[in-house]
């Protein structure tokens, strides 16, 4: 399986990663090699096998509907890159 440069660009965009043009080819090569490794999976027929998403067959525990977390905005925003009037700031979002 080989991944082309264009595909790397597409994936990088989906993953919101800015990849330098100079590095794209090496990413393409490495990703292709990884997919070759992963392709070994095709050797086994898994028809009818239930996918395992969790090591145990246990069910979701439910939390009581109680407010336990109080305002800690000051603590949280002390480590934020840009805030004003209690809001996190980002470059203008256009709808």
């Amino acid at each position: 399986m080989s991944i082309e440069v264009d595909e790397v660009k597409k994936i990088a965009k989906l993953a919101c990663l800015n990849v330098d043009d100079a590095d794209i080819q090496s990413y393409a090569t490495n990703l292709s090699n990884i997919l070759d490794l992963v392709a070994q999976m095709d050797a086994v027929d898994t028809t009818g096998v239930t996918p395992m998403s969790h090591p145990f067959d246990v069910v979701q525990r439910l939390r009581e509907d109680v407010v336990t977390d109080l305002d800690r905005r000051e603590d949280f925003q002390a480590i934020a890159p840009a805030v004003e009037d209690g809001l996190y700031l980002v470059p203008k979002v256009l709808e």
Binding site: E7, I11, L17, N18, V19, L31, I34, L35
Partner: peptide, 22 residues
């Protein structure tokens, strides 16, 4: 998004994010 993540994640992390995204 793309520069913060591109500049702050190392190569192996970016590689795995891309494999997983794919």
């Amino acid at each position: 998004y793309t520069r913060s993540r591109g500049e702050a994640f190392g190569e192996e992390v970016q590689r795995r994010i891309m494999v997983g995204t794919y």
